[in-house]
Design a protein around this nucleic acid. Structure first.
Length: 566
RNA sequence: UGUCCUAUGGUGUAACGGUAGCACAUCUGACUCUGGAUCAGCUUGUCUAGGUUCGAAUCCUGGUAGGACAACCA
């Protein structure tokens, strides 16, 4: 298995191993380069796991670099959240860098390019530049300012920096080829004038470099060996290489992989921002959001997200991963580590008529059958209990193993009970189920060896604690929410039932104590996670306070009854 | 009438000229004090047409399909 997985390398691992073997580099240095203009999402997690994971695997390092070349969109709120999320995922960077740290160097290199006759100041308007760029199938036209002298360009560029010109009145362009079949080469803009306050450099600059002029050089300055990015930058690579070549600086190389897509969700920062800003969700960390902080609040573990990223692989073809793979990764981890508790989400009262009214007892429950070290706990039991409404049917279909008139089931870790009768209200709703129990089955086993097919969970009505439980479903109702018909947008694909809040749920009393301690994960606050038996995995929400318990459903258990039942 | 990238089961991803494998999903069965977990098993795939070769998922050519590129965004 080990041997096998070592042999089956993805294309990036092959590139790295080849470079290591032929001595192109002694060790590798990667970077994760987010723009601080939004929160990280699961797609970034893929990139993080790749960049940090690859470096780790080959004994290299990874820099965190904020690509902060557009002051109007960026904010320190985002740089904080990004660092938080990377740490929580379990990765540590070698150094934190900012593209803005390199503004001075970038500026000097721009002058160098001007002096080599490879850059010029263009006075055309935005519109003119657009017009003259041509289209993908037709060549562009040279700017009338394209042949200014080196001296004039230098003078103008220095005055741009000095703040003599209005926003949008001039740009610095690389002088390449306005007829190039690759649009990226049609005299790409290197600098624009932006009299805007930058979150780090303040008002020092009024000209800011464009992505193409900043990214490769930033990689080069840091001696990044492998600059790994998503496919849409593929077409930028020749430009990336061009600047490095003309500047005669360290040759970092760019490699592209296909970004992550998951069904029933959207992955664009712009759309996620819109969901937040227009209040379709409660915030960036709404548990329905595909953001890292959303998944964290939903109860996902760093381990499960890393396992997911491992499993989806990496290649260059477009892909849409099934959400169920994410849930599988979560269940796989939580099944091993989450303690079990009993909680009744939709309670109906059950009375054991032959159990003495004045009697109470404690029963022993196993905390986690997957981990003996988690031990056991005591659960209070008495004459009156709550069970799940779904666990009783007056007229059950075939193969229904749960409680029904005359049928015997096991109350988990407690007793066998048999349903004798039900009480109903005027509308015919069941208000109370009457049972008798067999005292000999204490703990859940029958000394006479008789078996029951069904085991149901319960909580003592006298001891239960109230809780609010938030049931989440997919945020979008359609598999590919980005694909909206004419006149519609992705917002029309929102699932109106993505959140269902349940009040008056009844949970085991010990949960009230469980919730009191603080949990951190890699230094970041994290929720308590439990398996509510037979229901799914749930975690505490930050909205919990002293008198009020709030749980989020992270995911359900696999439910083969639901399948049978349709 | 552009340049570039991509094409393997339902979904992902391996196979590097020599037995198409793995995971998820699906379906069967076993087991079970969670209709969970676990275990065993079944079904399902090389876009297409040529070419090279003893042999092609793999190399070559054409086609088809999908994607990226025409922000003073990244």
């Amino acid at each position: 298995m080990e041997e096998n997985s070592e042999k089956q390398l993805n294309f990036l691992e092959e590139i790295i191993e080849q470079g290591l073997n032929d001595g192109t580099y002694k060790s590798i240095l990667t970077r994760f380069p987010p723009e601080p203009n939004g929160y990280l999402h699961i797609g970034h997690a893929k990139s993080i796991c790749l960049n940090f994971g690859l470096a780790k695997k080959y004994g290299g390092k990874t820099n965190l670099r904020f690509d902060d070349t557009n002051p109007v969109k960026e904010d320190t709120e985002y740089v904080d959240s990004i660092q938080n999320d990377i740490r929580w995922l379990g990765f540590e960077w070698a150094g934190v860098h900012y593209a803005s740290d390199y503004f001075e160097q970038l500026y000097e290199w721009a002058e160098k390019l001007i002096m080599k006759g490879l850059a010029y100041v263009d006075d055309q308007t935005l519109d003119e530049i657009r017009q003259n760029r041509g289209t993908v199938t037709s060549p562009g036209k040279n700017s009338p300012y394209r042949d200014r002298s080196v001296e004039e360009n230098l003078d103008l560029f220095r005055r741009m920096r000095a703040g003599e010109f209005e926003d949008g009145s001039k740009v610095l362009r690389a002088k390449i080829d306005m007829a190039h079949p690759n649009m990226m080469f049609r005299d790409p803009i290197m600098y624009r004038i932006l009299h805007a306050h930058h979150h780090r450099t303040g008002d020092k600059w009024c000209i800011y470099p464009m992505y193409d002029y900043a990214h490769g050089q930033s990689d080069s300055i840091e001696n990044i060996t492998h600059s790994i990015c998503t496919l849409e930058f593929d077409i930028h690579r020749p430009l990336y290489d061009w600047f490095i070549k003309q500047l005669e600086i360290y040759p970092s190389h760019q490699y592209e992989f296909a970004r992550l897509n998951i069904d029933y969700t959207v992955m664009s920062k712009r759309k996620l921002l819109q969901l937040v800003k227009e209040n379709y969700v409660s915030g960036w960390d709404d548990p329905r959001m595909p953001t890292i902080c959303g998944f964290r609040r939903r109860g996902y573990t760093p381990e499960s997200i890393r396992a997911f990223c491992d499993r989806i692989g990496v290649a260059k073809r477009d892909n849409i991963i099934s959400y169920s793979l994410l849930e599988f990764s979560l269940r796989e981890h939580l099944n091993k580590v989450a303690q079990r508790r009993m909680a009744v989400l939709n309670p109906v009262k059950l009375v054991i008529d032959n159990y003495p009214d004045n009697q109470e007892e404690m029963l022993t429950a196993i905390n986690n059958p997957e981990n003996e070290n988690d031990g056991t706990r005591q659960v209070p039991f008495c004459r009156e209990l709550y069970i799940e409404r779904d666990d009783f049917m007056e007229n059950p279909p075939k193969k229904y193993f749960r409680l029904s008139p005359g049928n015997e089931v096991r109350l988990r870790y407690a007793y066998f009970v048999t349903c004798q009768s039900v009480e109903k209200d005027a509308d015919g709703n069941i208000t109370c189920i009457h049972c008798t129990y067999d005292p000999a089955t204490r703990g859940g086993d029958a000394p006479d060896g008789r078996k029951v097919k069904g085991t149901i969970h319960w909580v003592s009505a006298r001891h239960a604690v109230d809780a609010e439980v938030r049931m989440f479903d997919r945020l979008f109702a359609t598999e590919a929410p980005d694909e909206a018909p004419e006149g519609k947008t992705f917002l029309d694909n929102l699932n109106p039932n993505s959140l269902q809040v349940l009040h008056g749920c009844k949970v085991e009393p010990c949960l009230a104590d469980d919730v009191k301690s603080n949990v951190t994960e890699n230094g970041v606050a994290a929720p308590h996670r439990f398996q509510f038996e037979r229901l799914g995995y749930f975690c505490t929400d930050p909205d919990c306070n002293d008198g009020h318990l709030v749980f989020n459903r992270s995911c359900t258990l696999k439910d083969s009854w639901a399948k049978i039942n349709g």
